[in-house]
């Protein structure tokens, strides 16, 4: 018989990718080679099992985090016209106005805004701890009173962990972080589908009395931050989009300034 079999032909047969004529030749060859026939049959069975094994993944609900990786539609024309720095200021103003808060828009509007160390370090802390499955916090929400008392003592001013139940986020707990000029309090919240936000409360930054409510994006992290009564606050999240995070930040601000 002229028909020659190579390994590629076996693969093509297993994958059902042979033309009818070639397949007929191949099957005749198999009849004469029972050991090969057995091997090919086993391979086909394993491949079927492989497809069945992972098929159910196609029907699983897609985690929200995967859907929110998609960039938002382009900014409106007015925003595109402005430089990013200008946009940052405009956004700060709009958000500040929205929560009825006194603003300190820099006089040099349009100049590049310096990167905020507060937002930067908050984003780093968020990125470090929010993916943690086993050790997201040092002290859990089940010991909230102890947590708040401990962190207050270490940062040197009275703290409160805002309650975000209204937004469906519950306190996971908190931890103490190193910072400059002193330790930082870090609270973590989580909603039922696993999305997390963290609140970074930093000791008074030198010479920075008050800062408008601002939004920035540090890598993948959305951050709303402000400095109030000489204490810096930053609410960060990778999973929660800007608008929803704004609602949360707004609530945090209100609760800390009743």
């Amino acid at each position: 018989m002229e028909f020659s079999i190579d390994e590629s032909a076996i693969q093509a047969y297993v994958d059902g990718r042979m033309e009818a004529a070639e397949r007929a030749d191949f099957e005749r060859w198999l009849v004469e080679h029972p050991a090969e026939a057995e091997r090919v049959a086993a391979l086909r069975q394993i491949m079927d099992a492989l497809r069945r094994e992972y098929e159910p993944v196609l029907d699983e609900a897609i985690p929200e985090a995967l859907l929110t990786t998609r960039p938002r539609p382009r900014a409106p024309a007015w925003a595109k016209a402005a430089s990013w720095a200008g946009l940052g200021v405009a956004l700060g103003a709009a958000i500040g106005a929205a929560i009825g808060w006194r603003l300190h828009v820099p006089a040099h509007e349009g100049a590049a805004l310096p990167r905020s160390p507060l937002a930067h370090y908050a984003a780093i802390a968020h990125t470090t701890y929010s993916p943690e499955v086993r050790h997201p916090v040092e002290v859990g929400a089940d010991q909230e009173a102890h947590l708040v008392a401990w962190l207050s003592k270490r940062v040197g001013f009275p703290l409160r962990a805002p309650n975000l139940d209204k937004e469906q986020f519950s306190l996971v707990g908190g931890r103490l972080l190193p910072g400059e000029p002193g330790p930082v309090a870090h609270f973590m919240y989580q909603c039922s589908n696993g999305r997390r936000v963290t609140l970074y409360i930093a000791p008074p930054p030198a010479g920075n009395a008050e800062t408008a409510f601002r939004y920035t994006r540090e890598g993948k992290v959305n951050v709303f931050y402000w400095v109030d009564k000489r204490i810096g606050y930053a609410l960060s999240s990778v999973d929660v989009e800007r608008e929803e995070l704004l609602g949360l930040a707004n609530d945090v601000y209100k609760q800390l300034n009743p």
């Binding site: 992972y54 196609l58 897609i62 995967l66 998609r70």
Partner: peptide, 18 residues
């Protein structure tokens, strides 16, 4: 294309899981 990408997510997930 963006919609096509979103539509392909289940297949990306299946492949990544395997």
């Amino acid at each position: 294309e963006p919609e096509q990408i979103v539509a392909l997510i289940p297949r990306l997930r299946r492949y990544a899981r395997a």
